[in-house]
Design a protein around this nucleic acid. Structure first.
Length: 326
DNA sequence: AAAAGATGCAACCGCTCCCCG
DNA sequence: CCGGGGAGCGGTTGCATCTTT
């Protein structure tokens, strides 16, 4: 049920314009802000300056017209790391998270996170159909949005509730299972190697490794949502490895007989030498060139998601922000 | 070259919070 | 103290563009 966008001519409320902003409208809005500052949004309409709601004006200003915005550039690795850490710490408090990122809006952060979740969901939901050479994997989704993905066929992964905030559920969780964090009540992401490849079932997860920062605030027992996805990987290409060895080596027996070594992505996975030292790969946050996005889907075919250590430490409050002024 | 699917992002909606009279 | 209005926030939707077949 698509509702029409771009309200002009919509009929119901001809007085209020919706949809994309015209350059002239931006100009008017900019002028208003120059004169009054970023406030009195509703007066813009009441004075007849623009046929837009105050809400819409504010949004336009905050998301597009603010002078300090980083428009058109993707999130840097460091920004990614910050978002992930802060999301684990604060949950979906995008506005709050955005205050830590200069030039980013809550909408930016929200979209970034959403995109990331969708990508992750795709990777985890459709592991079997190998990415064809140069091709894209087909999830069977008819929609362009991951939240409309059909039910999974892979029993090992089908319970992944990506529809719901990752902060409260965990991967591979079957309903009513016991992967709940005793401290936070949040669920942990846990997914096991699918047996479909004829691999023996994984041993109980040993000392898990954090791949992405997540988890409860240190010492907090409640509000902090737990988790971004944590994805330590099997060292010997078969099982989670006791002692957290080699979480960077991915194995895809169906696609490659050899373990796939991946240089650890610092920002996205949040690992550093304090956490992991692997025989074949050692984390070096500042030399890594691989981010979550860069990993092939095959990399996610087998993974173990760990219990989450209390990491990272809570972020300090953001620096005092400049008022929105020109 | 065209079609279909995937992706990113701008913008809207509904709800909540906060301030002021 | 209470109610109303404005502002802010998070979730959702839809479209343009890109990618793949």
């Amino acid at each position: 049920m698509k509702r029409p966008r771009g309200g002009r001519g919509g009929g119901e409320q001809p007085a209020v314009r919706k949809g994309p902003w015209a350059p002239e409208e931006d100009e008017v809005l900019m002028r208003h802000v120059q004169e009054h500052g970023p406030r009195e949004w509703s007066s813009i309409r009441s004075k007849g300056l623009l046929p837009r709601t105050g809400k819409s004006c504010r949004l336009r200003w905050v998301n597009k017209l603010r002078p300090d915005l980083k428009t058109g550039c993707k999130f840097s690795a460091e920004e990614e790391r910050v978002v992930i850490d802060l999301q684990a710490q604060f949950g979906n408090k995008w506005a709050k998270i955005a205050t830590y990122l200069h030039g980013r809006t809550d909408n930016d952060v929200k979209n970034f996170w959403s995109t990331r979740q969708k990508r992750l969901a795709r990777l985890l939901r459709a592991p079997m159909p190998r990415r064809r050479p140069g091709g894209k994997q087909s999830s069977g989704a008819s929609s362009s949005h991951a939240h409309e993905l059909p039910a999974l066929k892979n029993p090992c992964l089908e319970m992944i509730p990506f529809q719901e905030p990752m902060t409260t559920r965990h991967i591979g969780e079957s309903s009513g299972s016991s992967n709940q964090d005793p401290n936070t009540g949040n669920h942990r992401a846990v997914a096991h190697f699918p047996g479909a490849y004829g691999l023996p079932p994984p041993p109980p997860p040993p000392t898990p490794l954090p791949i992405m920062h997540a988890g409860a605030e240190r010492g907090s027992s409640s509000a902090a949502p737990a988790t971004a996805l944590l994805l330590p990987f099997s060292g010997d290409a078969r099982y989670p490895v006791a002692g957290g060895v080699d979480p960077l080596v991915f194995a895809d027996p169906a696609a490659s007989p050899e373990p796939l070594e991946v240089v650890p992505p610092g920002p996205f996975f949040g690992l550093d030498d304090d956490y992991v030292h692997a025989g074949r790969a050692t984390m070096h946050r500042d030399v890594c060139g691989v981010r979550f996005d860069d990993l092939p889907p095959e990399a996610f075919d087998f993974f173990e998601l760990p219990n989450l250590p209390a990491w990272p430490p809570p972020f300090p409050p953001p620096p005092p922000s400049q008022p929105d002024q020109l």
